[in-house]
Design a protein around this nucleic acid. Sequence first.
DNA 1: CATATGTTTCTTATGTATAAAAAACGGGGG
DNA 2: CCCCCGTTTTTTATACATAAGAAACATATG
Lengths: 294, 294
Amino acid sequence: MRTDTTFKRAFNDMIDIIRTLDLGAELPSENALRTQLGVSRTTVRKVLAGMSARGIIISEAHKRIIREQPRQKERYPKKETLAISEQVETSFMEWMLRGDACPGTEINETELARKFGVATTIVREFLNRFQKYGLIEKRQNAGWVFKGFTASFALELFEIREMFEMRSARLFAALPDGSPVWKQIQSMRAAHLELLADIDARFQDFSELDSRFHRLITAVAPNRFIESFQDVITMVFHYHYQWNKRDERARNEVAIREHLALIEALESRNIALIDRACRLHLTSARETLLHSIA
Amino acid sequence: MRTDTTFKRAFNDMIDIIRTLDLGAELPSENALRTQLGVSRTTVRKVLAGMSARGIIISEAHKRIIREQPRQKERYPKKETLAISEQVETSFMEWMLRGDACPGTEINETELARKFGVATTIVREFLNRFQKYGLIEKRQNAGWVFKGFTASFALELFEIREMFEMRSARLFAALPDGSPVWKQIQSMRAAHLELLADIDARFQDFSELDSRFHRLITAVAPNRFIESFQDVITMVFHYHYQWNKRDERARNEVAIREHLALIEALESRNIALIDRACRLHLTSARETLLHSIA
DNA sequence: CATATGTTTCTTATGTATAAAAAACGGGGG
DNA sequence: CCCCCGTTTTTTATACATAAGAAACATATG
């Protein structure tokens, strides 16, 4: 009943590993592959068996030789490598952001399960996890209510975000010169400049960089609650902007410049400068989000 | 397979309703009872049927008469009125706080289900919801890890709590005289004074008052993320102090006095005073918690 | 026609089943 | 001993089943 997405993902990854090796070369041990693929040895063996069956490798006593290079078409399609629970996430986000749901809509576990073609258990589990994003609410014995991707959601989100991020940014002022963070900040700046140079072609890569940047800043002084809140922010930006592409390029370019200004402020160690740059960026991000909701 | 805890809770509540009425009196309509009991009419009818079967009421055409007063022993025991999911919460907390679990302990869904005598589905659902408290973490395809009720947990918790509560407390300074909040603050003060007067007998009532007080303060400017964080705090204090009763009376008395000081500060509308009173209380609460963890 | 009760249908809460994945066990060779 | 592989056991992810509860529909009664 469980899907074999772990196997398929590992299989695809194994193809990539084999491609880095020569024909006739010997594969690493099962344990080594286990670490490289990040799965259990059971799954490694299943992948190896699959490779053998396809004639890609030959299993001899205590070793496995590459017989022919796997072709790209042997890969499993992306969708089959996603656990059902992950697919449900995507389905739900589409349902939500496509506008099938307005504030106050009642969410019906059974109906969603039917619509998404999965078991109710999964939908239920998803909703329970999704609750932390503040967009749905449970009513005892009577399903869920969708509270809406509204302006007040955005405002509440940004109120917290501002508290958390200002707190972290300020801590930079007191950071010793020797801290490894400064190096990470440097390479973060480089990544921003690179993206900026090629902004016309790569503006869609910003979303991921944005998330990494803000996580780096909040990581100066780890706090599990702040980190968990970053998930909320990442989710909002990831999904919301998938459905609101208006001005995407321009929007991202502005944000990159604001990030660069913040980086400079952080490096100055001047609290006033840091505060200003941080608040400027957050205000602008908030306005952009509000604008795209309305 | 579902338990009938809703019915049993409603049944007990109905006993209380009947006790406020006279023998021979007519019961309210099913719909009226539905609202009073907070359940569906289906459940109301089941309760009425139960009452009839026990001879407590007589169902005539379109009305129900009280035939005899129900006795207390007819109530269902408290435990049977708790949904399985609620029982699991208690079981898990005991397991955790009794010390069966040290930081890094792996949590096994199957084993917990066996230990608690419930279905794995329930344990899984509970863990998913419990994740937000920051005490456990999920590993892909491999269960959960208990991160421990440690000092760093307490410190991270209080860092956020301080941000949130100072934010709310400060907002009081700008509140207009006419705001209904001031009345609530007044009655909150009264409740504190009452408890203080009878502290030797009632010190265990503090936990609930504490939660209400802090929720009232954060409610001046509602923010779903702050409210959700209050759940974390409530959980920590509710369960942790159930297992750490040392100095409970003294500890609660101190906290009450700090609350009273904060109330006074809030009413002064003086930001500096508010800040000081709030920080004082939070610092002392943090120290108490840290002390009891060590 | 409005409100109350009787009846039917749909949904949620909880238990059970099972394939996939992980972990544990065990023997053999360097 | 330590790593490697074959085998067995345990656990997780997912599906499905069903009684309890909610909601919708229907009928009756004032």
